[in-house]
Amino acid sequence: MISGTANKIFQQVIQDYHVHDQIDHPISNPYDSQTLEHLLYLKCWIDTAQWHMEDVVRNPDIDPREGLYWKRRIDRQNQERTDTVEYIDSYYLSKFKDIQPLTDAKINSESPAWAIDRLSILALKIFHMEQETLRTDVSNAHIQACTEKLNVLLEQRKDLSQSIDELLSDIESGKKYMKVYKQMKMYNDPNLNPVLYGTQK
């Protein structure tokens, strides 16, 4: 089941990142570049770095110029995240290209890769919520509240993992079919964002 592989790789990524815990530490992807595993590792690494960028930019004492620097980095990082999701969907489009959908096949509300995207973010939430339960500088009430949240996140991962596996199984058997829409983001495109094309000479 792909969810088991994805969850294992996501946990590996988060552990690898926190060895150095530096946003700009270079990625060392252990998987062959032609494999789905490589894309899953890359996807979660992008998410993990962005998670920490989001922490930094929320510092209430941050210098506005530094805040703008991080906001623009987050924008670029989010574009990389979106691109990688589309690479994962391309993998599945290729994998299932010869599957003939049944006459009553239905489309899912999201593609496999966007569901996997949610699973990657969930892995980060679980890791960081668990860290909160291990703190020694907070009250018991804080620990209890975070423990309860962690249990909900763990249940959510179980349910989402099952849903992803069932979706892929349904696509493979023809009960559902994939239809992927590219993320036609406009604010990063100098030809579509009026603030950007309005300044072009």
Rank of each mutant, 00 (worst) to 15 (best):
Y197C: 00
T35E: 03
K8C: 08
D21M: 06
A145E: 13
T133W: 10
T136C: 03
M184A: 11
R58C: 09
I74Y: 00
I88G: 12
Q22T: 11
L40A: 00
P194L: 03
L42K: 13
Q77P: 00
S111K: 00
Y87T: 05
L154P: 01
I23D: 06
M129A: 06
L93I: 05
W70F: 11
M53P: 05
L154D: 01
L160N: 08
F127K: 12
C44D: 10
A6M: 04
P64Y: 01
Y92S: 12
M53S: 09
T147D: 12
E66H: 13
L192G: 03
Q11M: 06
L102K: 06
L168S: 10
L134R: 13
S94G: 11
Q156A: 02
L160Y: 08
Y181T: 01
L192Y: 11
N188C: 07
S33N: 08
L119R: 03
L150N: 04
K182P: 10
S169K: 12
I9H: 05
D89S: 04
Y181F: 13
Q162A: 09
D75V: 13
E130R: 07
I171G: 06
K106H: 14
R157K: 09
N29E: 02
L124V: 07
R58I: 00
R72C: 05
R76Y: 11
R72M: 14
K125C: 04
D61F: 11
T5L: 13
Q34K: 11
D98A: 07
P64K: 00
H25T: 10
D83N: 15
N7L: 11
D21Y: 14
P194V: 03
Q15V: 13
M53C: 09
Y41W: 04
